[in-house]
Design a binder for these strands. Structure first.
Lengths: 390, 390
DNA sequence: CTGTTAGCGCCTTCAG
DNA sequence: CTGAAGGCGCTAACAG
């Protein structure tokens, strides 16, 4: 319904490569494959060699540039390369042992903002190191995850980076451990990036961020401002991420000698809609809190909507904080105080560690990193109002 | 400052593959490589053959499963494969001509929501067709774009999909045309996905969405509601995307016999901050419009902020519409009326077309598609107020 | 400086 | 049913 192929134009027959106006072809042999209408295979080294009237080795050397070649010869070769529009075949190269292995990236869904940020970091660092980057999505399905991982291994990935939505399933974790082993045995590396890794015996790399610490920090901030009854809006269990944030919340409370009140944990998922609904329901009997710690910026967005619906103003009546420093945090009104997570750096670090490029690091065996998080102060918090709002 | 490697744990030495408790190794030859601590190369077909005491050909056949093999032999082979944790080398396969070529994806930045959606579509459709998906980012730099494209070609990509931020630079477009030619000559395909393509003679595939039509539709909606002075918030030039949306805006106006008023075009970029600033500045002398068509949902978000700042309410005082149906559209309050763009489908279609999988299509030569857009009605529009707001 | 040779790991005829 | 052999495209020793 929303798709409508409308035009269908030109059935362009694959034209010959349209290089610059072909320079007069010197003393090169007949260009053999000047215009081919059939879907032909790409030019090979041999063809170039023939065209330039040299051996394949010479061509290879000219291209590699790591070996002396007579200037005249080089010219001829270069011209032939241009003319035939030659590019070396990566697979053959790899087979011969001369290709830099790729970096593989396995994730649930690219549309997730955090995932996309990590992916961006991975890609940047990979290309910065001359590796290309293979990507595979799993939709959070453990079975697909294994399938994809296997595929990446076949591809001879030099590092496989796993991000997002780790299943708690111990069986699956065991499988992952096995895969990590295979990878490690082949000189590669499985990286758990921002998600829980199997037991410590597994030869895997782990890159995390200080999830609990961030939660501790924002909640402390609320406490310092004078809030005493702070809602935890998010699941108490099920997701490692949420669990860590809850832990930070509790620790902050404890440090202020406040008891943990289970009735202030609202539950729900990580998303916006769920948060909104849960909080709205909670709000029907009036509010018994002065601040909300949403497990996620999206959840915070939902919370804001719910609060608005019942006429509660943020931050005048209720303070609100989120987690993740998503884009929506600045779209909201008021702009959201939240915890910044260095997602892009997470991705970069994953690649560096896996590839053994930890510059400045003493031991190349550091296969574990924990990046810091920090609070971003914006406009959604204030000291609690004098009279508790009805 | 935001990064703080904190812990550095276990220097796990690459352990041997931890397969299930190794089954008693039948009559297989000594497993040769049972525990290796050095970073060794992956198992080869030959090793499996030796272990199973058969020829390489037989192993190959068992694995391919397309040729009769004695059950007993197959068992032996399978066991050896398991034991040695063998996976075929993709490069060798590719070289031999038996690998499905990959799909390459070239884009400016994964963090862009629209880009991420298209990428997701591409990846899904690619794996649905058994292709793996290579990704490369360009940061919008034409030179990097060319570099990356070259790399993809070397990789023997079966299709190269180019998305986002096309540079207007004619020189670069010419280069792209050349690359498209090379690709086509090698039986591959360059796809321009949601971005302008070079001249029609170029052997490229083009997948677009009805950009102008979407703009026409939303603006018409505003006009129907009675709005007569509608601000166009976005650049009048520079970006093909913005230009198309402006064109739709103008056509809608024309269809209502309204003149196009250049003073209602505010200018600015596609982003939030710019939109906010521009509109705020515009607003100092009061508002001479009853509705705003923001070129982008992000721009709309900025507009909303600017309007709020001067005490104008949406949609009571001013109606607001965006474009793109981004996630933030539903985060805003009021939720934003906008134009939905089928980004994911765009990606899928790109792959289908490039790979020649256009099911149901008559001519396999359709190398051009235009997907429809549609308005998503939410809460940010209303009929204009009686008295024009000051 | 340049050419010849020998594989990288796999698949696929062609013979047994 | 199974094995031996050749070669995909490229590069790295070795000779010239």
């Amino acid at each position: 319904m929303s798709i409508a192929p409308v035009r269908s134009v030109s059935s362009v027959p694959p034209a010959p490569p349209r290089g610059r106006p072909r320079p007069p072809s010197g003393n090169a042999v007949t260009p053999t494959r000047t215009s081919r209408t059939t879907t032909s295979k790409p030019t090979t080294l041999r063809q170039v060699a023939r065209a330039a009237d040299v051996s394949m080795a010479t061509v290879s050397r000219v291209l590699a540039g790591n070996y002396p070649v007579a200037p005249r010869t080089r010219q001829r070769v270069l011209r032939a390369v241009q003319e035939l529009d030659y590019v070396a075949n990566t697979h053959a190269r790899a087979l011969r042992g001369h290709a830099t292995p790729t970096v593989a990236l396995v994730l649930p869904d690219l549309r997730d903002e955090a995932v996309a940020r990590i992916a961006q970091g991975v890609e940047e660092e990979a290309t910065r190191n001359g590796r290309s980057c293979l990507i595979g999505t799993t939709r959070g399905d453990p079975e697909r995850e294994r399938t994809v991982l296997r595929g990446m291994r076949q591809n001879g990935a030099g590092a496989v980076i796993l991000i997002g939505g780790g299943a708690q399933d111990p069986v699956h974790q065991e499988e992952l451990a096995t895969i990590a082993g295979s990878l490690a045995a082949a000189g590669s590396r499985l990286v758990f990036c921002g998600r829980p890794a199997p037991d410590d015996a597994t030869p895997a790399t782990v890159v995390e961020y200080d999830n609990e610490g961030g939660a501790y920090a924002v909640v402390s901030r609320l406490l310092v401002q004078g809030h005493r009854r702070i809602l935890f809006l998010g699941p108490a269990t099920g997701s490692t991420t949420a669990a860590g944030r809850l832990a930070g919340y509790r620790r902050a409370l404890a440090d202020f000698d406040l008891p943990f009140r289970p009735e202030l944990v609202v539950g729900g998922g990580l998303g916006r809609a769920d948060a909104r609904d849960r909080l709205a329901r909670r709000l029907v009997g009036g509010s018994d809190f002065t601040a909300v710690f949403a497990v996620t910026d999206n959840a915070a967005s939902g919370a804001l909507a719910a609060l608005r619906e019942v006429g509660l103003s943020v931050p005048d009546d209720v303070s609100l904080v989120g987690y993740g420093d998503a884009e929506c945090a600045t779209d909201l009104l008021p702009q959201l105080t939240t915890v910044h997570v260095p997602y892009v750096e997470l991705g970069r670090t994953a690649v560096r560690l896996a590839l053994g490029l930890t510059e400045g690091s003493v031991s190349a065996a550091d296969q574990r990193a924990l990046l810091g998080t920090h609070v971003v102060l914006r406009d959604s918090t204030a000291p609690p109002p004098r009279r508790r709002p009805t």
